[in-house]
């Protein structure tokens, strides 16, 4: 330690030298990496179908928190379909993704995304899309009674953009296409 009390020992020099290294990792990247790795590990260790259950629980909790934030901020008991679409786009933009509304009608909200908040880390990790699906589904269902999420295109699967369809009417029971459905629990 020097006379003025500053640390100038070899450890401090090394620390300063390492801090100056050209490594692109900050808190944001670390957290994205952490979630990506957790998600991939969950998929690989317990399998995608079981991982879906865990992710649904996490997504439902986060979705409920975000839903409450928007309703409180807007001062409404329930959001209308346009408000729901705007909330979904807004929450994603706050997370640095490129969501926009492609179309809205009574039966569905269609969203387009050009930039994933997980960046390159999302590629091959479809369980991260499952998280988006659960958050969107929870918010849409709690406000509009029902939601069914479909992600026909995704950056995670190698597409250029993501296309997210939030169906607002229950599917035809004869439709064999598997889909993740969400229901308003407060009515249940």
């Amino acid at each position: 330690m020097s006379e003025d009390g500053e640390n100038t020992g070899p450890h401090e020099d090394l620390t300063a030298a390492f801090a100056a290294l050209d490594i692109d990792r900050d808190r944001d990247r670390f957290l994205r990496e952490l979630i990506g790795e957790l998600s991939e590990t969950l998929e690989n260790v317990v399998g995608l179908s079981e991982a879906a259950g865990f992710i649904a629980v996490v997504g439902a909790r986060i979705g409920a928190m975000m839903d409450r934030d928007y309703r409180d901020a807007l001062g409404v008991e329930r959001m209308e379909v346009e408000q729901v679409a705007a909330a979904l786009v807004d929450l994603k933009q706050r997370l640095d993704s490129g969501f926009s509304i492609e179309s809205i009608d009574d039966s569905k909200i269609v969203l387009r995304n050009t930039r994933c908040p997980f960046g390159e880390l999302v590629k091959g990790r479809t369980s991260l899309c499952m998280m988006t699906s659960n958050v969107f589904g929870k918010i849409a269902a709690e406000n509009l009674g029902y939601a069914r999420l479909e992600i026909p295109e995704s950056i995670a699967q190698g597409d250029q953009t993501c296309r997210v369809i939030v169906h607002l009417v229950p599917k035809d029971k004869r439709d064999p296409e598997p889909a993740r459905e969400y229901f308003a629990v407060s009515d249940g």
């Binding site: 079981e50 879906a52 259950g53 865990f54 649904a56 629980v57 439902a60 909790r61 659960n134 589904g137 929870k138 269902a141 709690e142 889909a179 993740r180 459905e181 969400y182 229901f183 308003a184 629990v185 249940g188």
Partner: peptide, 15 residues
């Protein structure tokens, strides 16, 4: 109770 409500709100089976 929260887990039951979550299970009621989604078609995905929950552990």
């Amino acid at each position: 109770r929260e887990l039951l409500r979550t299970a009621l709100g989604v078609s995905t089976p929950l552990p």
